[in-house]
Amino acid sequence: MTREGMERHQVWFYLAALVLGLLLGRAAPGLDGAAEASVWPVLAVLLYATFTQLPLTSVPAAFRDARFLGTALVGNFVLVPLLVWGLVQLAPPDPALRLGLLLVLLVPCTDWFITFTQLGGGDGARATALTPVSLLLQLALLPVYLWLLGGTPVTGVFTPGQVWPALLVLLGPLALAALTMRWAADRPRGRRLVDRLGAAPVPLLAVVILLVGVGHAEEIAGSGAVLRVVAVVSGLYLVGAVTLAVVLARLVRLPVPQGRTLAFSLATRNSFIVLPFALSLPAGWETAALVVVLQSVVELLGMIVLVRLVPGVLLRGVRPRRKAPAGS
């Protein structure tokens, strides 16, 4: 299957991986330890492959369109945190559940956001330019958000001994990807390698979800109440985020393609960037990692609707006329 085909049908890969992981975990409970240990190297490879697709060198170019960039940053880093805080108040007062929701809903997506922007008729160039800026800001601001909105100092949950593996899994691939892109910039063989890596994130994320399913099968099997909460909060988040995007796009008079890009930027969240931190939590906080995985599945199901709803109803534009065939 081509890269485009995998990206179009990725939600089914992830659902199948989750179901298979749960079945394996229930059938062979002894696999949980090996599965949890395997998540980390696979996640590192996933992040490396994803980061090689981000144009980190395009950060300066992103600042040239101040109107779009400013609107996207205000939406993602000012208005969305307020929306998330309000929605989390609807969840049961379970610290692990609420922390999982905060982790996964506070940070904008940097991978399939571009894919869904393109599928939904958005501006792929601006989505690509926004992505590295968004990544750098969310890494800096996430601890602040958790402290302000969660009501608990980050150090009260994430101790240095637990956080360093997550930071290593995140920052190591980021540094390696930057070196890879610099090396590949003027080498045809390097560019071919980066192109091939572009097909890796979907299957690798499916493997990560499978391993999480195997490692947490018992918890997930008894998580009906958690799933309902995540489904409701994530669904409300999608509605609220897209509404914010439509209002902002009209207030600042963004062109239609940029408005669609804004909608997908606010709607998609960075689940696997925060997954290492959720997995690094101490015993008793396993629900947080479960919330991250379940939210990503709910979000992907929502994207199936939004790639049609955003361009077809919410942010409609004039379709360009097709050129007549030569000689007609």
Rank of each mutant, 00 (worst) to 15 (best):
M1E: 06
M1K: 11
R3Q: 15
E4S: 15
G5I: 07
Q10K: 15
V11R: 13
L15R: 10
A16H: 09
A17H: 09
V19P: 04
A27V: 02
A28C: 03
P29A: 05
A44F: 00
Y48W: 11
F51L: 06
P55F: 12
F63C: 08
R67E: 06
V74C: 14
P81I: 12
P81R: 08
V84E: 01
Q89K: 04
A91K: 06
D94L: 13
P95S: 08
G100I: 12
L101Q: 04
L101T: 05
V104D: 02
D111F: 08
F116T: 14
L119D: 14
G120P: 12
G122T: 11
G122F: 09
G124F: 05
A127M: 11
T128F: 07
L130P: 02
L136F: 13
Q138F: 07
L139R: 00
L148A: 15
G150W: 06
G151R: 01
F158I: 05
T159S: 13
P160M: 01
P160A: 01
Q162I: 01
P165L: 04
L179A: 15
W183I: 02
A184T: 09
P188W: 00
P188F: 02
P188V: 03
P188I: 03
G190L: 06
R192C: 00
D195P: 00
P203I: 01
L204G: 01
L205T: 10
V207S: 00
I220H: 10
I220T: 12
I220P: 10
V226M: 14
V226E: 07
V229I: 03
V230F: 09
V232C: 03
V233H: 04
S234D: 08
G240L: 12
G240P: 09
V242I: 12
L244K: 09
A249S: 12
V252T: 11
P255D: 04
V256G: 07
P257S: 04
L262H: 01
N270G: 06
N270W: 11
S271I: 06
P276L: 07
F277A: 07
T287Y: 09
A288P: 13
V291H: 08
V292F: 12
Q295L: 11
Q295C: 04
E299R: 03
M303S: 14
V307E: 14
V310H: 07
V313N: 06
L315V: 05
R322C: 00
A324I: 05
S328D: 12
